[in-house]
Design a protein around this nucleic acid. Sequence first.
DNA 1: TATGGTCTTGTTATCGGTAACAGAAAGCAC
DNA 2: GTGCTTTCTGTTACCGATAACAAGACCATA
Lengths: 362, 362
Amino acid sequence: MSNSEKPDEPDANGVKPRSRGRARPNRRPRMEDVARLANVSPMTVSRALRYDSPVAEETRKRILKVIDEIGYVPDQIASGLSSQRSGFVAICLPSLNNSHFADTLSALNRRIAEHDLQVLIGHTDYRSDKEEKVVEAMLRRRPEAIVLTYDGHTPRTRALLQASGIPIIEIWEQPKDPLDHVVGFSNHAASYAITSRLIQDGYTRLAFLGEATDDGSRGAARREGFLQAVREAGLDDTRLLYAARAPITMSDGARAVAGLRETWPDTDAVFAVSDPCAFGMISECLRLGISVPDDLAIAGFGDFEIGRLSLPGLTTVGVDADAIGRKTGDLIIELRNAARAGDIIAAQHVDVPISILKRGSS
Amino acid sequence: MSNSEKPDEPDANGVKPRSRGRARPNRRPRMEDVARLANVSPMTVSRALRYDSPVAEETRKRILKVIDEIGYVPDQIASGLSSQRSGFVAICLPSLNNSHFADTLSALNRRIAEHDLQVLIGHTDYRSDKEEKVVEAMLRRRPEAIVLTYDGHTPRTRALLQASGIPIIEIWEQPKDPLDHVVGFSNHAASYAITSRLIQDGYTRLAFLGEATDDGSRGAARREGFLQAVREAGLDDTRLLYAARAPITMSDGARAVAGLRETWPDTDAVFAVSDPCAFGMISECLRLGISVPDDLAIAGFGDFEIGRLSLPGLTTVGVDADAIGRKTGDLIIELRNAARAGDIIAAQHVDVPISILKRGSS
DNA sequence: TATGGTCTTGTTATCGGTAACAGAAAGCAC
DNA sequence: GTGCTTTCTGTTACCGATAACAAGACCATA
């Protein structure tokens, strides 16, 4: 009507005169602009942009043409507010530099991206107070699901999450007291499995190398799995070696070798609580001229890169990080469909199988 | 006033009767609910939640108390729509399973989280068509900055980005033709530096191992840096070895050793285009009884984990991935402050220094 | 020709906040 | 007491989309 100052801007402004409120300088085009140029109502434009709505083919084409011409990009913030669906899935991870978590994240991302969902990442640095802050920030974004690793939550985190009414999925570890859904594996069962494999392969004097402060979590579960397998086979269940406080490192593993040779010199196999310390043991054995696996077999947990590169290769428990991500994604989609259909779904518990990776060290 | 059906829900509904529009069942509390209970206007609640607005201390306390009691969580979607600030920074990475990118991401995240910004991650799988899709999805979220690695963009990606009016930052690589800001290092200069170091250490017959299809990008820049150093020192600049098409792998490196010994048997040092293929060369040399570095010195590029674990350790170019993330974050904050102050800022170019990591292999 | 269904499009009223402005109250100098 | 800041709070009008309902056009059927 009366804006001719920007000839290259196809009539994008000029809606109603606004005596008050905010100025609208040279804004991006809105749906209304598209509507005007295509000679339809904004609602029809909105419908033309979705698969599910009925719009005459010819109308849709005309609208898409206008959209392309003026370079309209829909505003998902406005869309989210109006539809009350943010299109986000929040995921809180302890660290982004961990290749296992990166695998999980990337599989999850791939899965949910197919359904036009985006991930919102937070990282907690393995600290539950930071997790609380991250969860709070996430909730402000109204995600459609929240994915967390379990490593203990603060009471406030639990309260916030449970009051949110948003589906919660704890992954990797299986908490004793889950908040809602779980996608993970049992550390106990995995340790039992690899220990059984060692026994089956003929080892009879087995030791466990763990962390001194394995308070209730992973470490303890792995030790218990080891012990159960050893006991069921009628073997000596006293060879428990504790090195340092969590998290245990390569050098802790290296140092542990001496203690082992001193206390139980006839030990023929060690199951170490994680790959890095198992690798430390292997290196130290090489240095001392102890042959692996002939003098001493060594197994680890986690299938870290280091175990693949070591010589000999490290026998270990492989966790399918990718599968955790995929299954979490599947669960989210399933919950979403159910919610749309109005169904109420009980807390799901998805088990992710682990595998025993037998390599040269046993 | 008149809703007593849900005694546990503190008066959250009951605004106006709505004959039309959407139903509001048992919704989350809104700002208006807080306002009513604290006896102020919604605007005052909004102000009480920010640091910068003037609210009487007593009023703010009362409001925060109500917020805590009813468990109100602000809706950042609505906030974003109204304020036209999404609070997002978008970052597109080729892969999340790359520890360098993970470091960059994590540093960037740390930096911008201090300013109440959240990262929005997309991953492109090293494919520019996927990048286009990801960028489109990002733009719908109206991020306050977009961070990308450079690896070639489609024309449409370039157009979308440039029309968006959002600050764009390309990181890691320095494109010849940047879209906007850049935070990265020069592959040419880095290669020149490590080659010079080899020369300075006394090596005189240097070869380069690269990819056959290093079309314009990293590989070529590294080769040119190598050549410049060799030429300036007056040495033989013909020893260029090409193995396989990008990306070059460990086994390509291993295979290249034979060719090298055949064509230029007196070569005393190799600069390989990346760590994995350099590692492959080291392994092959060990197998063949070629002593590293006495018979042949080897250097790589990138400071991958594998170069740290190899024996001997791999001399390489270290890129400070963390610094890239930090500086990108700093730049974003700076641009943001400038934009608020109404300043217009020219395209920035931030250089990230690399380092030469001399280890046992040279 | 009246009736009912399907397909397509428009109208209205929000979603839950915040920008911009206005105005009241309080403090201060003269 | 007047005029001028400064501090605090309220009012109004949006931000840019979509849910829910309504209604017109068109067709087939009875």
